[in-house]
Amino acid sequence: MRPIENEIKAVIIESLDLEDISIDDIETEEPLFGDGLGLDSIDALELGLALKKKFDIKLDSSSEESKKHFYSVSTLADFIEQQKGTA
């Protein structure tokens, strides 16, 4: 478990008002949207904004690549580490 994964989960819970969900409830490898956590398109935009603020990363909301990065906490962690050059 990378520390950044828990940081991402904390951002998800805070930015999306998931008051009844704890960090341990979010599976690192499970899909965030649709079947998994059940988030929708507004959540995707909101989460993108929150991650941008928290990790100071650049996001292209229209690209197919972004969709892959937002698949799970794990893929988001890969993406952020890659952008920050720490991977």
Partner: peptide, 9 residues
Amino acid sequence: QDVSPKDFS
């Protein structure tokens, strides 16, 4: 600042 999409919608 960027506007919150949820607030906007």
